[in-house]
Amino acid sequence: MCGAVMLAKCGPRVMHHWAHEGQRDCDPWWENETEWHREWKNHFPVSCREVSHTAPDGEIHRADIKTPTGIYIEVQHSSMTDAERISRETFYQNLVWVIDGRSFRDNFDLYHMLPDPKSKMAADLVWYPAQRGMNGASDGVFWRWSENPDAIQGTGSMVLVHPLRDIHREVMANYHGHQQYDWVRPRKTWLSAGCPVYVDFGDDWLFRLEQYGESNLRCVFRVAKRKFLHDVMVETRSIDIATRFHPIGTTAFGSRTDCHE
């Protein structure tokens, strides 16, 4: 794409590849590719990987993955500045981030389930933020708008507090994948992202970073990787991934059949 000289790297230890001659790369957003990075790209057809685009100023960028429906997926292992994140989101727009969470898994605590924020039940509940070391809130503590009219009027009165166990069955019946979490020493740029961010801890699930309903309560939305791989190939907008039901079938996770059904 850039017209520079390339060298064939065909040694006995590293995967054979082409590289620029000298220490350079034509894409300033490029980073060294890890095995985790390659595994993610290998879930998609070759035509979807390393798709190049030229910006109006002539700068070349290669998206890790671009699906046939126009969704871009950037698979990110290393840390990133706010400026670089914003520049990529502005450039690609219809973008999804998948970030490697294995290095901070011990600092990422998943807590109690939350009812679907669109449910009638959720509209009446106010949850206390979960946090490492706060066993009460982390097990689930809430109060109800309907029981505390003074709170509605903003008088600052005391509220009647309940533990999650009082409504556990109702929460389970209205659970669609939302959970409270606490991220100790978070990579803050991802909390401010303008495009959906999915954290991959190396198993069969992804966790999309969200805010719960109209509150400032941070939560994650649990999505099966198999569901994610299917939806990015059929949805046209990144924000629609894992928002509706699609029959996927019974083939193994990660196979290309899953992506195209």
Results as ranks from 00 to 15, higher is better:
residue 2 C to L: 06
residue 4 A to H: 09
residue 5 V to N: 11
residue 5 V to R: 15
residue 13 R to F: 14
residue 15 M to Y: 06
residue 15 M to L: 15
residue 16 H to F: 07
residue 20 H to K: 01
residue 22 G to A: 09
residue 22 G to D: 12
residue 23 Q to N: 06
residue 24 R to C: 11
residue 27 D to M: 12
residue 28 P to C: 10
residue 31 E to Q: 08
residue 34 T to R: 10
residue 35 E to D: 13
residue 39 E to C: 03
residue 40 W to T: 01
residue 41 K to V: 00
residue 41 K to R: 04
residue 41 K to Y: 06
residue 46 V to G: 03
residue 52 S to K: 11
residue 54 T to W: 08
residue 56 P to S: 06
residue 58 G to K: 03
residue 63 A to M: 07
residue 67 T to N: 10
residue 70 G to Q: 08
residue 72 Y to T: 00
residue 74 E to W: 09
residue 75 V to R: 08
residue 77 H to P: 03
residue 77 H to Q: 05
residue 79 S to C: 05
residue 80 M to E: 09
residue 81 T to I: 09
residue 81 T to H: 13
residue 81 T to R: 13
residue 81 T to L: 10
residue 82 D to H: 07
residue 84 E to A: 12
residue 85 R to S: 05
residue 85 R to A: 02
residue 85 R to K: 02
residue 88 R to V: 00
residue 88 R to G: 04
residue 90 T to H: 13
residue 92 Y to R: 06
residue 93 Q to L: 15
residue 97 W to P: 07
residue 99 I to T: 01
residue 102 R to G: 04
residue 104 F to Y: 13
residue 105 R to T: 03
residue 107 N to H: 01
residue 107 N to A: 03
residue 108 F to V: 00
residue 108 F to Y: 09
residue 109 D to K: 12
residue 109 D to T: 14
residue 118 K to R: 15
residue 121 M to P: 01
residue 128 Y to Q: 08
residue 128 Y to K: 02
residue 133 G to F: 15
residue 134 M to K: 15
residue 135 N to M: 09
residue 136 G to T: 12
residue 136 G to C: 06
residue 139 D to A: 15
residue 139 D to T: 11
residue 141 V to Y: 14
residue 143 W to H: 07
residue 145 W to G: 03
residue 150 D to Q: 14
residue 152 I to V: 14
residue 153 Q to N: 07
residue 156 G to N: 06
residue 157 S to K: 10
residue 158 M to I: 04
residue 159 V to N: 07
residue 165 R to P: 02
residue 166 D to H: 11
residue 166 D to G: 05
residue 172 M to Q: 14
residue 172 M to H: 12
residue 173 A to R: 02
residue 174 N to L: 14
residue 174 N to D: 15
residue 175 Y to L: 11
residue 175 Y to T: 11
residue 179 Q to F: 05
residue 180 Q to H: 10
residue 182 D to I: 00
residue 183 W to P: 00
residue 183 W to Y: 12
residue 183 W to T: 00
residue 188 K to E: 11
residue 190 W to S: 09
residue 192 S to T: 01
residue 199 V to E: 04
residue 199 V to S: 06
residue 202 G to P: 00
residue 203 D to H: 04
residue 203 D to Q: 10
residue 206 L to N: 11
residue 210 E to Y: 08
residue 211 Q to E: 07
residue 212 Y to A: 07
residue 216 N to C: 06
residue 220 V to N: 02
residue 222 R to F: 06
residue 223 V to G: 01
residue 223 V to S: 09
residue 224 A to H: 06
residue 226 R to V: 00
residue 228 F to I: 02
residue 229 L to P: 03
residue 229 L to N: 03
residue 229 L to I: 01
residue 231 D to E: 05
residue 231 D to V: 00
residue 234 V to G: 05
residue 236 T to C: 07
residue 236 T to Y: 13
residue 240 D to N: 13
residue 241 I to G: 03
residue 245 F to T: 12
residue 247 P to Q: 12
residue 248 I to W: 14
residue 252 A to H: 11
residue 253 F to W: 00
residue 259 C to R: 11
residue 260 H to L: 04
